[in-house]
Nucleic acid binder design. Structure first.
Lengths: 98, 98
DNA sequence: ACGATAAATGCGTCTGGGCGCATATTCGAA
DNA sequence: TTCGAATATGCGCCCAGACGCATTTATCGT
């Protein structure tokens, strides 16, 4: 399930994109931490992380009670470029639409 | 309305992404042409092009009965990079998900 | 003015995805 | 083995968005 549309859909959700921004620091983050940072409920955060994992954007690791997520270090180069481009978008690109 | 999520959502739709692939040849295309190429109904194609325009990804131009669409030549650099990255995604990135 | 072609749009329908709530599961510590 | 913390998941609700059909609008050729 890694066609371009699936990938883009995984990115096109505010909470998921925000989570990726945090994970982009290169470190691991547990669900509870992301939950707190983003003001999301537990089940909501858990499901969003599942979506990111299924899209191949993050990997997880059990560590005692916690599940640590980090960016998938093995993303294909084109996907890496997409993620980087998405994370580098300024919060508000000014209006250019006709 | 050009927050990152809006842009990504505009890209995360098969017909719209396919339309952008065609427009990526640098030329103009009317709705009727894209409709035929992509096997989409008229209203469907028209509405997808509206969505792309509202996202600032394309611009349109009246030319007699036709409306010619082309990639927005004035996209901010970060958006350009995103679009390029999206269009360069291979149709099937192989499975890396955990 | 009329008919044909291209495109946009009003409207109703339907489905996917996001949400909360409750419950199950997993694991450490006591 | 029992408790509590962290996470996952079953279930139902709701809504944004994608669709088709029909109609309207814009523009050309005759």
């Amino acid at each position: 399930m890694h066609d371009p549309v699936t990938l883009l859909a995984a990115l096109a959700e505010p909470t998921r994109l925000a989570a990726l921004r945090h994970l982009n620091d290169g470190r691991e983050h547990c669900v509870c931490e992301l939950m707190a940072l983003l003001g999301a409920s537990q089940s909501r955060m858990s499901r969003h992380m599942l979506a990111l994992r299924q899209a191949g954007l993050v990997v997880d690791r059990r560590d005692a009670q916690w599940v640590r997520y980090r960016l998938n270090p093995a993303m294909p180069a084109p996907v890496q470029r997409l993620v980087r481009a998405a994370l580098e978008l300024p919060p508000h690109t000014e209006s250019l639409a006709a």
